[in-house]
Design a protein around this nucleic acid. Structure first.
Lengths: 342, 342
DNA sequence: GTGAAAGCGCTAACAT
DNA sequence: ATGTTAGCGCTTTCAC
């Protein structure tokens, strides 16, 4: 049987409560006693029983707040599935999760939600932020003044006091795509890039990673100008047609934008979907269909579900076990899918 | 706050114990009362608190037995890391895991271990079996007569009474490799296949999946004869040299065998590592090095760690929450790695 | 057929 | 500065 608090208390000749305090550095214990207790716990290999802890905490339950942006997108829907699964799981342990869904990107709204969640007494927050000074300030204030730990997921706020970030390394995602493209294309072929808003740092990193790595691996290839689109399938289709008209020799396309379906439609209409290697991002419903029927060759995934699930669970573990994540940047795996391993 | 047993008891006007019995169909409750209780529980949305359950169970702890074969291989080492992590986790909940490591493949020893674990009072078993009639019989006997649920992981025993299998779909792994190879090679190029023992069903499935899919995708390619090796790096190197001498036009190699390093050495000595697309299996130490330095282009992974971790955890959840796995065949993701997403 | 009661290991309010 | 104690929600023994 595992070592319990009581056993340490017996061994040290003090009460359970004293051991508890000593182990948590809560003071109010004579330093030499605390020292002795800690040594004893170490020697006896004490590991707190999580079930016991969770149960005791059910008196005033741990509550976690979650804020998501762009909640209407298919990608974030998938993230939210992960969040809800995590909620179900922590609920079965007597904790709870309160979720604020924000549609679109809106820093002001995020800050308002943070305030609201704080008022409602959450002990920690997991949120999808944006590189915004106001959000950064609020994160720092929660962490420092209110002692409410914050986890960012999916997107990050660099240099803020969040305990960690769970999400993709976008540059590496772009590089991974470049590696695939380099293997698939023959000498001196042409490449097109389609991406979303030029202001989106995530998309930019991907594209940059792709360009840099590809020109290093295959200096012979010709990487044409970057085409920008909004998240709109119709526009994506139009732009893709433009690209194909402008550069009819294109043999590879990297799609960093969300509107993958529009691109596929254009390729099919032009009847070139079999001749062009297409690598796109996000392993999601419509995209998967394109992959299955062959108009896309590879999808690069970022574990949307896991981001949501792990964002919440990281925080829960931190709150329950006082266990800091090992790394400040918890990068999710970069997934490569072709038709056969979906 | 979540619904508790007590609340249901109050609502039904009976004691907690009665509710407990009714919900578990343990009899000794008047049928109409049982019916009423179940309906009530449903309506109130009762979800047993896992922390409470785990804690109560700590009186006579859940013990899980684990048996691994080929435990000396790097692959199984990785699986065992997962097993140990799972052990740490369930221990923190008051349960325990007992592990039997078997070196090499040995059905008799597996059966002996199953017997031993049963004597030592385990409530469930997770094991790496082999397609062996004796093992199958023992699995069925444990499941039926002793009511000890069994989970197979990494390899399976088809048609046995295990509650589920956690591991790779080998055929799909081969197909995935074929998809990659089809994209990388130019017209009419030649392909070599190197695999391990012809008796190993896992390796055979991979090779078959690869051959079938590749000849379907690219009928122009020429797939040469299959080379067989033992798990010996030196022999692998020799055989690879043979292959290259026999078919100097080879432009793609699929390595289904464990001895990947030997293959890489041969390629380097021959100075052809940059001209040949190599796709190998298992994302592990030495293989990763080959991938990083470029003598391998792709590694197909089978989530070794996860197989070990999830094999044990599936069983634990089954025992704790009485929750059957959703699927009988719990296939792990087929991972594609290039130099950039390792 | 049903219920009372004793824990499981931990936390935290309340003594001392 | 340290100890006592009352639960958290569940399982299980034992008595009715």
């Amino acid at each position: 049987m595992a070592v319990t608090l009581q056993q340490i208390a017996d061994a040290a000749g003090v009460s359970r409560r004293t051991v508890d305090r000593a182990l948590k550095d809560q003071g109010r214990v004579r330093p030499e006693v605390a020292e002795k207790i800690k040594k004893l716990a170490e020697e006896m290999g004490y590991r707190p029983n999580q079930a016991g802890r969770a149960l005791a905490l059910a008196k005033n339950p741990i509550k976690i707040g979650v804020i998501t942006q762009s909640s209407e997108t298919p990608f974030m829907q998938e993230v939210l599935v992960g969040v809800h699964d995590a909620r179900r799981r922590v609920r079965r342990n007597g904790a709870d999760v309160e979720i604020c869904r924000i549609d679109g990107v809106n820093a002001r709204q995020v800050i308002a939600c943070m305030e609201k969640l704080k008022e409602s007494g959450v002990r920690g927050m997991a949120l999808v932020p944006a590189e915004d000074e106001g959000i950064k300030l609020e994160i720092d204030r929660l962490s420092e003044e209110d002692h409410i730990p914050v986890v960012t997921f999916n997107s990050d706020v660099s240099n803020s006091r969040r305990i960690c970030f769970v999400g993709q390394n976008n540059k590496k995602a772009g590089q991974t795509a470049a590696g695939l493209m380099a293997d698939c294309l023959k000498s001196y072929e042409q490449i097109g890039i389609i991406t979303g808003s030029a202001e989106n740092p995530a998309l930019n990193s991907r594209v940059k990673g792709f360009q840099e790595t590809l020109s290093e691996l295959r200096p012979d290839l010709m990487i044409n100008q970057v085409y920008y689109i909004a998240d709109d399938e119709l526009q994506a289709e139009k732009i893709t047609v433009e690209l194909l008209n402008e550069f009819p020799q294109t043999k590879g396309i990297f799609v960093s934008a969300p509107a993958v379906l529009g691109v596929c439609r254009a390729l099919r209409k032009k009847g070139v979907e079999k001749e062009i290697i297409v690598i796109a991002n996000d392993v999601l419903g419509e995209n998967i269909k394109c992959l299955e029927e062959g108009s896309i060759n590879y999808l690069i995934g970022q574990e949307a579900y896991f981001q949501g699930y792990e964002g919440v669970m990281t925080l829960y573990r931190y709150l329950l076990e006082d266990r800091k994540p090992k790394k400040e940047l918890e990068y999710t795996d970069i997934i490569i899918k072709n038709r056969y391993n979906i």
